[in-house]
Write a protein that binds this DNA or RNA. Structure first.
Lengths: 103, 103
DNA sequence: TTGACACGTGACTAATTAGTCACCTATACT
DNA sequence: AGTATAGGTGACTAATTAGTCACGTGTCAA
């Protein structure tokens, strides 16, 4: 769980997920072309994403294909994000309190 | 947005949010007691959370009260998490593919 | 007004992380 | 076989981050 949050903390890794969201199953080389970074940097990020379970991989000959795995994000959503995102109504009352305090 | 993800990446900061979720409006000293960390460490984490907009603060005399703000998490949920969490059905078919591949 | 209390700041150290590179292995193509 | 292509490893540097500490400021209460 912690690994998922840490993996999502980096903008490069989020844009990698975005890339795979646009087109799933891309190779390392394909992903490298789209990022302003060396192949090795991309590799490292992909490794972090894979260890967090956010992507899965499959080998096809000498290529490695990368696939998005929505499961961990779903878990983060269910166990964590929804818990804090739900009190939406209370946010409004809190906003009201803040405005009142400025007076 | 990036600040929110980075703020959520640290387990200490997530547990601070948990603490405020249990009881909103706690002071620095109160939060410090619950964590195995010096006051200064907690202060730093609270600062990160505040700059990400995840908490808001209010002064009461010499105390500083900390309040949970669900808005940024809601934005993360709406703009980002839901995008990846929704393809739940596709996860199942992906799982199926993986099982087949192991054969 | 003295002393205790709650919080804040800047400097510092230690640990983690991002990114690159030289070099290597495995697959493909002719 | 020989060469190009796709990916992998370990070591290294630079940047970021976590955590602590000495010291300072504002507030309360006798």
């Amino acid at each position: 769980m912690d690994e998922v949050f840490k993996a999502l903390a980096d903008p490069t890794r989020r844009s990698l997920l975005d890339e795979l969201f646009k087109q799933d199953g891309q190779t390392l080389s394909a992903l490298e072309e789209r990022l302003p970074m060396s192949r090795f940097g991309v590799m490292k990020h992909l490794k972090v994403l894979e260890e967090a379970g956010l992507i899965t991989t499959r080998k096809r000959g000498r290529e490695k294909l990368h696939f998005l795995n929505p499961v961990p994000i779903r878990l983060v959503h269910d166990r964590w994000v929804s818990k804090y995102a739900e009190p939406w109504a209370s946010a409004l009352s809190q906003l009201k309190d803040e405005i009142e305090e400025d007076e």
